[in-house]
Write a protein that binds this DNA or RNA. Structure first.
Lengths: 326, 326
DNA sequence: CTGAAAGCGCTTACAG
DNA sequence: CTGAAAGCGCTTACAG
């Protein structure tokens, strides 16, 4: 049941049916009504696949997020999807594992699917993938990540500064033994570690490698990392956790070990997800404007798809979110 | 740059290129190598849109979740997407608001996009939508919801029994004043309320309408509902919250009001999301096999798309997850 | 304002 | 084993 059947039944040409369907050209009221009636009657559903082929646009966008995706990603994703939807695009979600093959395969799938654009929230360790992306001519926006050398616009905060500010906040609260739980695999993670070191350095607090443990951005990994820190028996009066979800795990580990928060150990998170205001104790955190990242990434992608010029870097502001945990 | 250019360059027909691309028929090693070389050299990317048109399959599936989506949905979604991906399908996510128009529009979009199947996790109040769905001939699976009268296979738990069991658990812990925070808009929610009433009835605890408040499945709504319950000044020794996320909000409200958990008020959640094991206090909950729901829904959808017969109802087991909150 | 026809980039019987 | 050709369901110059 295609446009042709409708045309025949309404006694018009397929061109006319197409025109009333898309409103692309004026069609006399008379014919329009006939066509509309047939469409209604036959329960006709337009075929976007055929449409996409001739238009060379699918009105689909791809969104690539890490498989171990955090609430942070969900929040970005939710906003981006909303903005894209309002502009008439659907969103294809791809959760990639960080295996060499997986990301490549997924990107190929997206390219083959002829999405109109991609929002990338996942870094890979494989430079080949990036070469591939560059060649593809695909409109791409990086959200919350920084991959130097790629010619794609980025939307993110200044992770170095944000981490520096977070550490300084703990210092200002008279903390002297600040442990760190970092998350591996992201260049923004590395920048956050550097910000932490810098802040310590500036006040002559000596930085010790053993005060750092690495998690994988999940709640459980945060709990385990905290557990490892506590087991070392070093003096710790606070811990800066580079994602709120890991911080929730860290809180659990601290409580399980019988320590009080913040009296024995203060906890500072990173991200400022909604949930952080509801934990017990409520979580102090370096807040990213998460939803804004999603909105901006989507809007920039829309501009890119229209062929407009866009800023190569959109730097958003972070801030400190107070909480009982510090 | 299509299959035709590749064919010309390799000195073969488009049919041959198509065959080596898809491995559908044996092609002599000689030609195959030539074709592969050109594909490599030209950085050719197959066009799935054209392919979908002739195959009448897109290898895309639609996933419809409520806009106010919970961690519960994310977990189902993650698993379903994984299973579908392994079978070669991509997933289109649609978050629908419960406005009459929104869901209809989204479904139309999905139908027009010619997805191969749909997993529905959202109930709507609009019967028209369901009529539309029935007519569409689309393979559809309902995950975690129950819409009587629809001929689509369902994957879910027995919500009535689960809620009954949860209430009974509180009763077994000597609770006499069990408040309820329900979530509106779902038939499974109604069933859970009935299970609660039934359990109270059986032990001659009189049920009071004022002991029930309704939230909207968000953390904040749970906090507010709990706040309203506390403000009534009725005796409450426990609260059964029909989603873990709302329970997290309820815990916050109870703590903010200066009560102890579980000594003053015990809290029992529903869902058993991963996070519940990390809250403070850890959350006791009626656990759904969330990930299993996602896996089964996807597998059933795959069967349906293959044209196989499937069970009209797959009932999975719930269980009671202990926690410090009770 | 309306229609006949070409073309989007593939797949696949059908012949050879 | 390989190729010429039809066809998937649309859109849109081009003519009238």
């Amino acid at each position: 049941m295609g446009i042709r059947e409708i045309a025949r039944e309404a006694g018009v040409s397929v061109a006319t049916v197409s025109r009333v369907l898309n409103g692309t050209k004026y069609v006399s009221e008379d014919l329009k009504q006939k066509v509309l009636a047939c469409i209604e009657k036959e329960n006709y559903v337009a075929n976007h696949v055929a449409r996409s082929m001739v238009l060379k646009r699918t009105f689909n966008c791809g969104l690539i997020i890490p498989e171990v995706s955090e609430l942070y990603h969900q929040m970005v994703f939710t906003q981006a999807e909303r903005v894209l939807e309002e502009a008439g695009y659907k969103t294809l979600v791809c959760r990639v594992k960080d295996s060499l093959s997986s990301e490549k395969i997924y990107l190929d799938l997206l390219l083959e699917s002829r999405v109109d654009g991609i929002i990338l929230m996942h870094e890979t360790s494989n430079p080949q993938v990036y070469e591939h992306l560059k060649k593809s001519q695909m409109p791409i926006v990086l959200a919350g990540i920084d991959i130097p050398g790629l010619p794609f616009p980025q939307v993110r905060i200044d992770d170095y500064k944000a981490s520096y500010d977070g550490t300084q906040y703990l210092i200002s609260r008279k903390k002297q033994h600040i442990a760190l739980i970092s998350g591996g695999g992201y260049s923004v993670g590395d920048k956050r570690v550097k910000g932490y070191k810098k802040a310590l350095e500036e006040v002559n607090l000596n930085f010790e490698e053993c005060m750092i443990e690495t998690g994988s951005y999940t709640v459980e990994s945060g709990k385990q990392a905290m557990h490892r820190l506590l087991e070392k028996g070093k003096t710790i009066d606070s811990v800066f956790v580079l994602s709120d979800e890991m911080a929730i795990g860290a809180i659990r580990a601290i409580l399980d070990a019988g320590h009080r928060i913040p009296d024995d150990i203060a906890v500072l998170g990173f991200d400022g997800i909604t949930l952080s205001s509801y934990t017990n104790p409520t979580l102090a955190s370096v807040r990213q404007p998460i939803e804004e990242i999603g909105v901006q990434a989507a809007e920039i992608l829309l501009s890119l798809m229209k062929g407009e010029e866009v800023a190569s870097l959109t730097l958003l502001n972070h801030c400190l979110m107070q909480g009982q945990s510090v």
